[in-house]
Design a protein around this nucleic acid. Structure first.
Lengths: 103, 103
DNA sequence: CAGATTCGTAAGCCACCCCTTACGGTAAGT
DNA sequence: ACTTACCGTAAGGGGTGGCTTACGAATCTG
């Protein structure tokens, strides 16, 4: 239902890197910005996009916000791709059959 | 290895619609443009992006080019997402365990 | 309470992406 | 050979996305 936002979110290289890092282990905004070639506000904006897509969740720990990967967004995306995968395979098989009328 | 281009290709709504149509049944450029709110050259450019991502293939039939969905690009993308899925789930389970130290 | 740390948001800038129109090239039909 | 159909590419413009700097809010520490 919301696989579009997840797709758009993971299309950006920086956002993808952030998500991969958070998927390996939850982290704070400042820590993420420290190991990235962009500023902290940029990371904050990326995290908002990932959050809107259901890819990450936030938990406040004092003054710092810990972001962790969330299965929901990825689940939607995988469901969508699996649907496509079925269509592509059936059509692909049909085309192969047409290409070999001799036998 | 080339899941990045597939991800970027499917992030665009128009390109996604083109791919879904072609995944249902192979089609020519003009036919695709006919059932889309964009011009034919735009469709041609989108098809090039999809082709570079390994998502579609072309076969010439006289003067018209028939585009069909190709499993390769989708396979790469699914492989990448499955890898992420594993990381997310293990970490998600670990967080749940930490959230319930009482029992 | 004052200072320091961590973070989100606003404003602005710049590059890139998508679209269009225009053109050239190839194949089929008469 | 000429016309028609179908397509890819070049060139240009408009809108959007991602980045930065600047500012304000919230929490912890001394």
């Amino acid at each position: 239902m919301a696989y579009e936002s997840a797709l758009a979110a993971l299309a950006d290289p920086t956002r993808r890197q952030i998500f991969e890092t958070v998927a390996a282990a939850p982290s704070s905004v400042g820590l993420l910005a420290g190991q990235l070639p962009v500023s902290r506000p940029a990371v904050s904006q990326h995290l908002k996009a990932l959050s809107d897509a259901g890819l990450v969740t936030v938990t406040k720990q004092g003054t710092r916000n810990i972001y962790a990967a969330c299965p929901d967004g990825l689940a939607d995306l995988r469901r969508y791709l699996d649907g496509l995968w079925g269509d592509v395979l059936t059509n692909f098989a049909k085309d192969i059959a047409k290409e070999l009328p001799n036998d």
